[in-house]
Nucleic acid binder design. Structure first.
Length: 624
DNA sequence: AGCACGCCGACT
DNA sequence: GTCGGCGTGCTC
């Protein structure tokens, strides 16, 4: 008698035992999909082990075997297992992150070629032995393009040794761009992987069937089913899009690290502005560090302290300082291109009643609606709720609506008033940017990803907002923005700020990039923040505010009571950010630990026993 | 996650 | 009496 241990794409750990019907016992393999009856429902399961006996009394049989050749090889199953143990999800949920949508829904595929033999997985493990670090290199490339030379050289080297390559990029347009580079420079099959690609399944199967291939893709392509993986490249390693917003909350960069360790592949991380996590590893000599300096002179960099900039007698917040305005004017005169940067879309972030002062809020979220001038629409950036902006206050019916918190639409209209003769263009979505189209460009952070464009003058607005966020990474994120803007600038950068002494700005002004990293790292070390310790959010959400609050307090108390580990600390309990989203109320517990895996294990055990009717609990390890 | 079971309050 | 809302626990 043969038994199959099966996991499911649900938030239940498993695995669950099933009997294997005699006619399937020769055909069934670890890594194959099966239809099973689970709690009287026909569900898709993944075979993770075959056994000669089972401790469970009343077993149900496997209903159908979908794959005569396993979809997942030993390494893929192991990677999913490690993901589930690090990111606090079930093994089955992690497996579903690996597979294309069609395969998760039970689509059968024909003509799969086995990936060699597939030995059984005996027991869960990771980090039982001292983890071996993969061979990794961090390329800190200030100008942003030179690293491709290194990439291409390493890709060729890997292909020559008959091994495959995965290149991971932040977004689809970067993927398509990279594909063109690869296709012209590399003579090898190229695969493209991103979720929502129309031929996702066909492409996935093709990648699985080809011996040596270069796969280019977004976050999920870290799981690409290449046979012999020799190299993984993560471009713009610091980008937060590598973190998945839904369960499992994996970060493709860390998964790439895990995968390189399993498959003994090399890892290259490239970035204009490396994360502190990987910069710290470099400083500890745990990975190779290559710095590619700016290949041209630094622009002149100047900060304007807006505390001392008051135009006229009025105290109202100035948008453009006199100095910046004059600089734009002289740049216009000499025919130069100007970029004004403000990381805030729309016209205003805040619409309120002149009479009663009430701010217009999203009905589903605890968030002020942003105002877009062109179509006169109020929009929630979280749930995308839209409404026509009312003329008079819906609350007191007497006041008219005023706007505050300038976005780039506001800057644009301000500029066209001041520089009536100039051509002005707003960039708030990624598109084809042509420098010929305007004299002054007003842009949000989407501009950072542009390649091959340079501005004579770059004016940076609203950087204080970015620095003042209640997020321990705010300085790091701001610095990454500034380095991105440095890359786009040719002659001069003007930064309007009330915090000119901040490390971010001092590092730029002194043209000594490393002092930012040194100071920020030493602060993080002192405060026991990442990368010196892991942070974990335990998020609770539900329709009823009071219940979510109560459950969170109970959970906080309970976790503190049962926690015997000196490593794990349950730090705080706070309303979510925002506290209400899509009609759900949020609370979050913050946990810290030296070992994410240990904390995850602790949470898995203790969340299981926690009663939470009507409340959904999710765990986010290493939030970004 | 989802679903059944069972306990309590409001009501034809 | 019984219908149904919601808390609790289990799924091989």
């Amino acid at each position: 008698m043969l038994f199959a241990l099966v996991v499911l794409g649900l938030a239940v750990e498993g695995p669950f035992d099933y009997t294997v019907p005699a006619d399937l016992s020769k055909k069934i393999k670890v890594g194959a999909r099966v239809w099973i009856n689970f709690r009287n429902q026909r569900m898709l399961g993944y075979v993770v082990k075959l056994a000669k006996k089972s401790k469970i009394k009343h077993l149900k049989p496997i209903l159908e075997l979908l794959d005569h050749t396993p979809l997942l090889d030993k390494n893929a199953l192991l990677l999913a297992k490690q993901v589930s143990e690090y990111y606090c999800c079930s093994w089955g949920e992690a497996i579903e992150a690996v597979l294309p949508g069609a395969l998760r829904k039970g689509r059968k595929v024909a003509g799969l070629i086995p990936n060699g033999d597939c030995p059984e997985i005996d027991s869960p493990w990771i980090g039982n032995k001292k983890a071996e670090l993969p061979s990794a290199t961090l390329i800190h490339d200030l100008d942003g393009q030179d690293r491709w030379g290194i990439y291409l050289e390493q890709i060729k080297k890997t292909l020559n040794s008959k091994k495959s390559v995965i290149i991971i990029l932040p977004d689809i347009s970067a993927v398509l761009n990279a594909r063109e580079i690869i296709k012209t420079k590399i003579d090898a099959p190229v695969g493209i992987l991103y979720r929502k690609e129309p031929n996702e399944l066909e492409e996935w199967l093709r990648i699985k069937s080809i011996g040596t291939i270069v796969v280019v893709g977004t976050r999920s392509s870290v799981f690409a089913p290449v046979k012999k993986l020799g190299l993984v490249i993560i471009d713009e390693e610091h980008d937060s899009v590598y973190k998945q917003e839904q369960t499992p909350h994996y970060n493709a960069r860390e998964v790439a690290f895990m995968r390189s360790r399993i498959e003994k592949a090399r890892l290259i991380l490239g970035s204009t502005a490396p994360s502190l996590e990987y910069l710290n590893l470099a400083k500890k000599n745990n990975l190779r560090y290559t710095f590619i300096p700016r290949g041209r002179d630094f622009p002149e960099i100047k900060t304007i302290d807006v505390k001392f900039e008051r135009r006229g007698a009025k105290k109202k917040n100035i948008i453009l300082s006199k100095y910046l305005e004059d600089s734009i004017a002289s740049n216009l005169d000499s025919g130069g291109k100007t970029l004004l940067f403000l990381n805030r879309r729309g016209f205003a972030t805040y619409a309120f009643c002149h009479n009663c002062g009430m701010a217009l809020e999203c009905p589903r979220c605890n968030i002020n609606l942003a105002f877009h001038f062109e179509d006169s629409v109020l929009n929630c950036r979280y749930c995308n709720f839209k409404m026509q902006a009312p003329k008079i206050c819906p609350n007191c019916s007497s006041g008219y609506i005023k706007f505050a918190g300038a976005g780039i639409e506001r800057i644009e209209s301000e500029l066209s008033r001041i520089f009536a003769q100039a051509k002005i263009k707003r960039i708030d979505f990624r598109g084809n940017l042509n420098l010929k189209d305007a004299d002054i460009f007003v842009a949000t952070s989407t501009i950072i990803k542009e390649v091959n464009c340079n501005f004579d003058l770059v004016g940076i607005l609203g950087i204080d907002n970015s620095l003042n966020r209640i997020d321990f990474r705010s300085a790091e994120k701001t610095f990454a923005l500034l380095l991105g803007l440095l890359r786009l600038s040719r002659k001069k950068i003007i930064i309007q700020t009330s915090l000119p002494k901040h490390n971010c700005l001092q590092a730029l002004l002194t043209k000594n990039i490393d002092i930012f990293y040194e100071k920020e790292l030493s602060q993080r070390r002192e405060l026991r923040f990442p990368p010196f310790r892991h942070l974990i959010f335990v998020k609770l959400r539900g329709k009823r505010e009071e219940r979510v609050r109560e459950a969170s307090f109970n959970l906080f108390k309970e976790l503190n009571r049962v926690n015997k580990s000196r490593d794990i600390k349950i730090i705080s309990l706070n309303p979510g950010q925002p506290s209400k989203l899509r009609d759900n109320f949020y609370w979050q517990l913050l946990v810290s630990a030296d070992s994410a895996k240990r904390a995850t294990k602790f949470l898995k055990i203790n969340l299981k026993n926690f009663p939470h009717s009507g409340i959904i609990v999710t765990v986010d390890v290493d939030p970004v």
